[in-house]
Design a protein around this nucleic acid. Structure first.
Lengths: 147, 147
DNA sequence: TCCTTAGTGAGAATCATTCTCAGATGAACG
DNA sequence: CGTTCATCTGAGAATGATTCTCACTAAGGA
């Protein structure tokens, strides 16, 4: 691992984990997250990590996922066969995710929760504190493959 | 969301389960769903059923929840401590849910996914097939209680 | 380098959900 | 009313994802 291609692994790991201690395991996990690209389960991440460095336990992967989620760099985007799907969460601004159910690629989308929806919630007496929006569909490649 | 019509239990059960067979257990489960009012987990539903009729197994409750969800009369609205939360899904028109994180009451909200969001998804090459929207907040009573 | 403490690995523990299977029972039909 | 049979049920085992425990390691500031 020499040379700075896109984002140096150390920098990537730093960003993903948001200030927490940078161990060898977490560097490998950050690398695996990047290599996976789209949405993945904890188990898939564990397998991807194993291909680059043996001996990293499943508990470590789960802890790393929790840390990255807490740091806001990973977001849950639904589930597959009972396990939670996660996706790399780009940038700092508020957005949501559109997940391809065919291949797992993810793109960010604008937040559709607007003032009028919030106002109708307030009319019902509610104070809205959080919301979740996720779209599912097929990317261009998977749409073509389906034909 | 008060002023519920006092629908006969049999009719309620019929509606909740779509066309499937109406057993004693499912009648009791339909009754329990009505008595719970807001969002609930399968375990809470099981307990509520037990209070009206003993001996209904947890597997039966899970099967009933799956049947009602398939019939469109129940919808998953997030999770609590690792178990899925479900809520009674009113009416037939497309809507989403706003859940009070304090007491679990649920109200329906309009769908905010509009044409412009769909268009931007299409611009990214995606064919959108489904979406999930859930708001979380505090109802009037829980907001007051918090002060 | 030393020290403190967060991070780690292995596997056990937990816990929600699903499965299995023999038996019960709705509801359609004669 | 009685027969028939697919569907539903109950109990508990099985499954599987996630979390916990605990002794140990190593990151990184002093």
């Amino acid at each position: 691992m020499s040379g700075q291609t896109h984002a140096p692994a150390a920098l990537l790991a730093n960003e993903l984990f948001g200030g927490s201690r940078l161990s060898v395991a977490r560097r490998a996990i950050a690398e695996a997250v990047r290599s996976l690209g789209g949405a993945f389960t904890a188990e898939e991440l564990h397998e991807a990590v194993a291909s680059s460095r043996e001996g990293i336990g499943v508990a470590t992967v789960y802890r790393a996922v929790a840390a990255m989620t807490a740091a806001g760099s990973l977001a849950p985007v639904g589930s597959r066969k009972g396990s939670t799907l996660y996706a790399l969460c780009a940038g700092g601004d508020h957005h949501h995710h559109l997940v391809c159910t065919g291949c797992g690629t993810v793109v960010g989308i604008a937040c559709p929760v607007d003032g009028s929806l919030m106002r109708s919630a307030e009319d019902a007496g509610y104070t809205v504190t959080a919301h979740e929006v996720t779209l599912y569909g097929l990317c261009a490649a998977c749409t073509r493959a389906r034909d």
